[in-house]
Write a protein that binds this DNA or RNA. Structure first.
Length: 137
DNA sequence: GCCAACGTTGGC
DNA sequence: GCCAACGTTGGC
């Protein structure tokens, strides 16, 4: 099973919003980047992703799960882009901040560190385990 | 098809 | 609020 990381600005859509969306979850739209789209298309049902707060917080706050595979995004007039649905699984007991990730040499190759602009990105198994442990999950 | 100019994202 | 990094657009 692959793991992922998705980013959201908390003033637009925060972890709290995601939790409030409950078991039926919510669609993850607004991706207008082909690299991010490729990753969305590669996601499978039941795969988990870290939920990261960009701009404000700058930390991984929770874990979400894919509950609906890639489908067209109605808000995209070109019809090229799409989205998946996520539901909240559980919060991290202790959020893992970008500062902490940068400070850990085992996590220095994360895309989050090297390409801050990519909003959907893969996470390796090793990185997933390290961050789960750091986050008390 | 190249590349300069521009817009957006997101860390600081 | 600034600016670096990156993606996209559009002229040639």
């Amino acid at each position: 099973m692959a793991h992922w990381l998705i980013k959201s600005e908390p003033n637009k859509w925060s972890w709290v919003n995601q939790v409030e969306a409950g078991e039926k979850g919510t669609f993850w739209n607004g991706v207008r980047n082909h690299t991010a789209k490729q990753y969305l298309m590669a996601m499978k049902l039941g795969e988990q992703a870290f939920f990261y707060h960009s701009n404000e917080g700058k930390e991984i706050v929770g874990i979400v799960e894919v509950i609906k595979l890639f489908y067209p995004d109605p808000s995209d007039a070109t019809g090229k882009f799409g989205m998946v649905d996520f539901r909240a699984v559980k919060p991290l007991k202790k959020p893992v901040s970008l500062v902490a990730i940068k400070a850990d040499p085992r996590l220095k190759d994360m895309i989050l560190v090297n390409n801050s602009r990519l909003s959907v990105q893969p996470v390796t198994d090793a990185e997933w385990k390290i961050i789960c442990k750091e986050g008390g999950v």
